[in-house]
């Protein structure tokens, strides 16, 4: 039994690592290792591993532009969704609201639409006046806020529920109003949990493709995943594409290991009773 488990784990790990290995390998490959012309099989390790592709990327202005756009879109999505979501989560966690189940359903309802269906109306709306006057960074940020907000509310609700109510009562006794209690007592306590929601939102935005693709279809300014697709259609060079892919993946992989606990909560939210 134990050896069977060991073998299965090794197989699954191989299955998981293989594409990542190939991506890394291609990104370090020299020309001979990827353009074989059918004379010899593609090697499992590049003949002459090098960092040329990353050097080429580091001087490309369009790549830096896409990276910055991704960064700004992510930060905007984090700011919007925390600013909108944290108070709502607090209200859900603390106040008695009549008909709360229906309200909760409405909060999540927008995610019932498939992304590819929802993106048509959202693109039609945001790409027509007056919204189209806004810079694309803000448009994509607004769309990503729409995707992340339900999760933000859900995570932040849990965070506020975990803070003991006594603290608020004591603050109230000492004469602090509700708004002041929220800002001065609860927010600092909730910050680590809200930070997790922020990281979750940031990487949701960093990885997101569909909305960014539709909203920046015609412009030059775009996010990293859409930039990757454009490079794929213009010059499908295995090593260059893999280098871009790797640069997109590295921050996400690192943070997955760091915030796994919260990712789990976000992924399985409401799934198991």
């Amino acid at each position: 039994m134990k050896s069977l488990r060991f073998i299965l784990i090794c197989l699954v790990l191989f299955f998981i690592i293989f594409p990542l290995f190939m991506m890394t390998k291609y990104s370090l490959s020299d020309r001979e290792s990827i353009v074989t012309g059918g004379k010899y099989p593609e090697p499992f390790f590049p003949f002459k591993p090098n960092l040329e592709m990353f050097e080429a990327l580091s001087v490309r202005k369009d790549f830096a532009g896409a990276g910055l756009t991704s960064l700004w879109v992510g930060l905007l999505a984090v700011a919007f969704s925390l600013f909108l979501g944290a108070p709502t989560a607090f209200a859900l966690a603390r106040f008695k609201i009549p008909g709360i189940a229906i309200l909760l359903f409405f909060l999540l309802s927008v995610r019932l639409f498939p992304d590819i269906s929802a993106v048509i109306p959202v693109a039609e709306l945001l790409l027509s006046r007056p919204f189209s006057l806004l810079p694309p960074v803000i448009l994509v940020g607004l769309a990503h806020t729409l995707l992340a907000l339900p999760y933000t509310v859900y995570i932040a609700k849990g965070v506020f529920e975990s803070i003991p109510k006594d603290l608020e009562e004591q603050a109230h006794v000492l004469g602090a109003g509700k708004a002041r209690t929220f800002l001065k007592i609860l927010t600092p306590l909730a910050l680590p949990g809200l930070g997790a929601a922020a990281i979750y939102t940031f990487f949701l935005s960093w990885n997101e493709f569909v909305f960014a693709y539709f909203l920046t279809f015609q412009g030059t300014q775009t996010t990293l995943p859409v930039y990757l697709l454009r490079i794929l259609t213009w010059s499908p060079q295995k090593n260059f594409i893999s280098a871009i892919s790797l640069v997109i993946c590295i921050p996400v992989i690192i943070f997955t290991f760091l915030v796994q606990r919260y990712m789990k909560e976000g992924l399985t939210a409401g799934a198991v009773k």
Partner: peptide
């Protein structure tokens, strides 16, 4: 408190 995210979504 409740309205911002609710209204947006």
């Amino acid at each position: 408190f409740f309205i911002p995210a609710f209204l947006y979504l």
